[in-house]
Design a protein around this nucleic acid. Structure first.
Ligand SMILES: [Mn+2]
Ligand SMILES: [Mn+2]
Ligand SMILES: [Mn+2]
Ligand SMILES: [Mn+2]
Lengths: 218, 218
DNA sequence: CTATTTTTTTAGGTTAGCCTAAATTAATAA
DNA sequence: TTATTAATTTAGGCTAACCTAAAAAAATAG
């Protein structure tokens, strides 16, 4: 009644509706879940019968209260595991997502409580994403994308908007890990790239890279 | 091609054939896996097609080399997780089997290597069961069942032959945890029960209990 | 060595998840 | 507003895992 497939749908619907705070389309789901649109239609009817989503034919889907609760639980487990793997088992921030994708489905509240406790009940995961608390409450952060920061501003890396391993490894090579502080030296109006100074090293960042780094003014 | 169901079959076939060093019957499998015999027959045909088992109709089943290798991997993961949960996350030895039943299916060699390393590459799990190494090799132990120990013998608890939570909790209450040392005070020939002295406390054990405690002479 | 009991297999059915191809519906451009 | 394109749904099919009931085979008892 609550399979891994269902959990992956719920989590994905949650993540997509967070993103654009709207109803989720079948196409988006099909893409993220690596299945065909026809499969999504079928699955949504099923989730609707289980009262996990409101599915309106040819319009879109959103989570019910019950579905939302489940989704937040999955997201919590995913992010706690990622944090645990990085902080306690020495994994790199580019390696943990895939493993957490499986670990998130393990249902054991004592286990999650132990892990969270050991980590000091963290509020952010290794990519700067907020970790819902046991009740599903999320700390709302308002980080800025680095490409929107003005020249000469001081800021600190708080997270990333893209957590693909390639991007994460690239950032790490540049020293742009979570907590790194920097100053924006120069903005290139031509291609919207920028040069920042981080740990006494100048780094040149493309618009795409800067747009996927979340920072906070310091 | 290697689902959780298949993994549970392989592990169960392995465990049962270890037990009586013979071919495994459908009935035994059905009982352990909580499915009907007809389901087992079907599954075994499938495992046979995958070359994980040699299945001889109406006779019995044993693992192939490939199946054995997979089974040992699952058993290794199961026991490493159990050890980890007890040693690093403070779980009781009666609580970990159920969780490990799910964790054992997570495939990530780096994760398992990290856990094993952190635990000092343990050879026994919290119930005294041997942990196969990365190559599937198992340390052969020759523990004795406590009920076979003579009067006045000194021994140390090395494991249990039954790892049901009720039994484990009962042992813990009596202080008969792994590593506990004791001396056999008295054997009751009438009901084969015995009295042992453990940590300066006399404990009376039924034949059933003593028969499920694995010890080593000291 | 037969009769009975137990075990295993076969036959036929169900559901979740996946697919492709065709039909329908919605969105966009002319 | 119609024509075209894009998204969604329907129809029809497949496999893995489960089931029950009946048939067949093997084991056991008399
Ligand atoms: Mn992740
Ligand atoms: Mn997942
Ligand atoms: Mn176990
Ligand atoms: Mn299992």
């Amino acid at each position: 009644m609550r399979t891994e497939t269902i959990e992956n749908y719920l989590k994905t619907i949650y993540r997509l509706s967070e993103l654009n705070k709207a109803v989720v389309s079948n196409q988006q789901l099909a893409e993220r879940l690596n299945v065909k649109p026809a499969t999504v239609t079928e699955a949504l009817k099923h989730l609707n019968r289980l009262n996990y989503v409101h599915y309106e034919k040819s319009y879109g889907t959103r989570l019910t209260a019950a579905g939302s609760k489940l989704a937040l639980g999955i997201v919590r487990r995913h992010r706690i595991w990622e944090t645990y793997l990085v902080q306690k088992l020495g994994f790199g921030w580019d390696e943990v997502h895939e493993i957490a994708e499986e670990l998130e489905h393990i249902q054991n509240s004592k286990l999650m409580a132990r892990l969270a406790e050991l980590l000091g009940n963290p509020v952010y995961d290794p990519h700067g994403e907020p970790i819902p608390d046991e009740k599903g409450k999320i700390k709302q952060s308002n980080f800025t994308r680095l490409n929107e920061m003005p020249q000469r501003s001081n800021c600190k890396v708080m997270g990333v908007a893209d957590d693909s391993p390639v991007f994460l490894r690239y950032l790490q090579e540049q020293g742009l890990i979570i907590g790194a502080e920097m100053i924006v030296l120069k903005l290139e109006s031509f291609d919207a790239s920028m040069t920042v100074m981080c740990k006494k090293k100048q780094v040149h960042l493309s618009a795409k890279v800067a747009g996927n780094i979340l920072v906070e003014m310091i």
